[in-house]
Design a protein around this nucleic acid. Structure first.
Length: 409
DNA sequence: TCTGGGGTCCTAGGACCC
DNA sequence: TCTGGGGTCCTAGGACCC
């Protein structure tokens, strides 16, 4: 989908069309006042001058989506709001309306599935579609079907998308970027040398900032530069799995299927604080946030019908270092109090002397709740078992955690 | 003036088992 | 007295993606 979050907002505020608009920042920080002032009035009649501007933004958010006019100023996804404000102070800023975005996400995906049923979910604004067996899917190299999908989506939602058609997911993903916005691009196997090899290595889905930096250090800048290396050389420099994959990717080889169904692996909630917090000095505030995160993860699990048995925490320190701890318990759970207790034990095993900017809670090793029999009290060990088995080789702070493991003693 | 939130997958060492 | 080769699970960190 083209500039998805921003496009969804433009449906409500068509008066902003053609202007630099960015979506992002904290929830409800930006336009509550605006909406209050205009309660009962049609949103498309709110004067442009009354929308909040990026230069007035304060906070720690990043940009989720920028409209194409805003991108001309160098503003883009994942950029900090403060930096964006310097590049384009006059941009209008709106918060993310997740409920609305999810509504449109479900809508465009369902429209696609009605036309071509083999669809792989790739997040809120992206899918892979298998054209192979769709009637007419091969006409004009897929262009006819791509046009049909674009038209069906724009007719139903008013939103545009860009489509890449290629022999595999790897090339299709790159092709989808060629004609943005509202474009279609067809890439044939024989086009790899002319259309793919000149591109920067970073355009490969799977090469991120770290690998890009390493490739640059080795004087490889384009995908063609990678393709010119031997498989063995790439394996020597990037490891067996990644090196071999990189070689295949540079040659446009990818045999991954379009996967239509998958089970979640983990669910988590995390939050960045308005200001950095200290475990001791801001104990009460942190405690509240912690409980809230556990409650919300538990709600997510129940709403979606899952239970999990690996419970973990994530911290981000003021210097941006990340620490994670997790612990696998004996019984699957979706209970907020259980999650909080176990996550609390994880918290004791991590350095809390530094100030924190983020706290997160995660539940992994998920299973469908209805596939797991409810745990019975009878299988729990008597409490005294735990009390008499302290582990002398662990530092004092870790003792609490050893009590949980004693069932296996 | 720094840099969100929700995910997946991979690696690597250690415990433990047969 | 010196010591195998599988395998799985757990944990921590990290790269990457949308």
């Amino acid at each position: 989908m083209d500039a998805f979050f921003a496009s969804v907002e433009l449906l409500r505020y068509p008066q902003l069309k053609g202007l630099p608009v960015v979506i992002g920042g904290g929830r409800r920080k930006v336009d509550d006042l605006l909406l209050q002032r205009h309660a009962g009035r049609e949103l498309r009649h709110i004067p442009i001058e009354e929308f909040p501007l990026l230069k007035d933004y304060v906070g720690r958010g990043v940009i989720t989506t920028a409209t194409y006019p805003a991108r001309q100023f160098g503003v883009g996804s994942a950029m900090g709001m403060m930096k964006a404000a310097r590049l384009c102070p006059q941009a209008i800023v709106l918060p993310v309306d997740f409920d609305e975005v999810r509504r449109f996400s479900r809508s465009f995906k369902s429209i696609i599935r009605d036309i071509a049923p083999v669809v792989e979910d790739r997040g809120i604004d992206e899918v892979y579609i298998d054209f192979t067996e769709v009637p007419g899917g091969q006409r004009e190299g897929g262009r006819v079907l791509a046009r049909l999908i674009q038209k069906a989506i724009v007719d139903a939602t008013g939103l545009t998308c860009s489509i890449g058609v290629a022999p595999n997911k790897l090339i299709a993903k790159m092709a989808s970027e060629f004609q943005k916005p509202n474009g279609i691009s067809i890439v044939w196997p024989e086009d790899v040398q002319t259309k793919i090899w000149p591109l920067a290595v970073r355009k490969i889905n799977g090469i991120g900032p770290k690998s890009e930096a390493k490739l640059h250090k080795l004087h490889l800048h384009t995908i063609g530069d990678i393709a010119a290396q031997s498989r063995d050389w790439l394996v020597d420099n990037f490891g067996q799995a990644y090196g071999a994959w990189m070689h295949d990717a540079a040659w446009g080889r990818d045999d991954r299927p379009v996967v239509t169904e998958s089970e979640p692996v983990s669910m988590s909630r995390e939050t960045t604080f308005d200001r950095d917090l200290h475990a001791v000095r801001d104990r009460a505030e942190l405690g509240e946030i912690f409980t809230d995160l556990c409650t919300r993860v538990a709600e997510d699990l129940r709403r979606k019908g899952y239970v999990g048995k690996t419970i973990g925490i994530k911290l981000r320190y003021d210097d941006f270092r990340i620490a994670t701890r997790d612990q696998t318990v004996d019984d699957y759970t979706d209970d907020a109090a259980t999650i909080r207790k176990t996550a609390g034990q994880c918290l004791k095993r991590v350095d809390l002397s530094r100030r924190l900017r983020l706290l997160g809670v995660r539940v992994g090793k998920l299973a469908k709740a209805d596939a797991i029999p409810a745990p019975t009290a009878a299988v729990s060990p008597p409490p005294h078992v735990a009390e008499f088995t302290p582990d002398l080789f662990q530092p004092p702070g870790v003792l609490a955690d050893s009590t949980v493991r004693t069932k296996t003693d």
